[in-house]
């Protein structure tokens, strides 16, 4: 069943059009990898889905309902969560309070403080530290945990491996199947294509605000993908 469905979506920053004519869909339990070079519009796409930036055209549907134009704080209550680029923990809150505030919208579901600590055991001893006293990897775990605490149906993750050591990235990526197993839709953006294709079922490549290639991850034509990524016209 389609969980999230975008239809001819466009978005603008003032005059500048950052997204045009985007159509894509994610099913419950499915992971979609969004790839594209710097400035392709990946983060903008996520902002539109979570309501941080209103779409200037097109439809965004969650479970068939049009949610375009609703503010971010309402969409959280309807089950959309995001791990933002750069983690952006609340600097005045402790780790545990950062996680708790994730549950502000009050959605019921499998994710609780205990489950998050099971998923990322290293956070237990850091629970009373301020977010910014943590290492980058630990901060990223808090950011993911914070998003999970809202028990979303659809989870968006923007460059979760940015600036982290490969070993830490591996550790975080090992947690992703556990997360996906709960049946939520996942939308993953990464610079490192191999990384995101390894956990996703399908990919979607953006170039200058447009989708220029989509397909299943399993048997992709690497050359076609590379061409799409770098904008070499076939």
């Amino acid at each position: 069943m389609t969980l999230l469905h975008l239809e001819n979506v466009a978005a603008h920053y003032d005059q500048f059009q950052a997204l045009r004519d985007i159509s894509l869909s994610v099913a419950a339990g499915e992971t979609l990898a969004v790839v594209g070079s710097n400035g392709a519009g990946k983060s903008t796409l996520m902002k539109v889905i979570c309501g941080a930036l209103p779409a200037s055209a097109g439809r965004v549907r969650l479970n068939g309902q049009d949610i375009a134009g609703q503010p971010a704080h309402r969409l959280t209550a309807q089950g959309i969560a995001m791990v933002p680029e750069g983690r952006r923990l609340f600097r005045s809150l402790t780790v545990e309070d950062n996680l708790r505030i994730g549950a502000y919208a009050g959605r019921k579901g499998p994710w609780t403080l205990e489950r998050i600590y099971q998923l990322f055991p290293e956070l237990v001893k850091r629970r009373d530290n301020r977010g910014l006293d943590l290492s980058g990897g630990e901060q990223q775990m808090v950011a993911i945990g914070r998003a999970l605490m809202s028990n979303p149906q659809m989870l968006l993750m923007d460059e979760i491996s940015l600036g982290l050591a490969p070993i830490v990235v591996n550790q975080i990526y090992r947690a992703l199947p556990d997360i996906a197993a709960e049946g939520m839709g996942l939308l993953i953006v990464e610079q490192d294509i191999n990384r995101s294709l390894s956990v996703a079922a399908r990919f979607c490549c953006l170039m200058e605000g447009r989708v220029n290639l989509t397909g299943p991850c399993a048997d992709t034509d690497r050359k076609a993908l590379m061409d799409a990524y770098f904008g070499v016209s076939a």
Partner: peptide, 24 residues
């Protein structure tokens, strides 16, 4: 309190607070 934490979160970063379901 939850609302107190929401105050601090909003003061830190209103955009991200909105992603938590808080109306800044």
């Amino acid at each position: 309190t939850l609302i107190g934490r929401a105050f601090r979160a909003t003061s830190d970063d209103p955009q991200i607070a909105a992603l938590m379901g808080i109306d800044p």
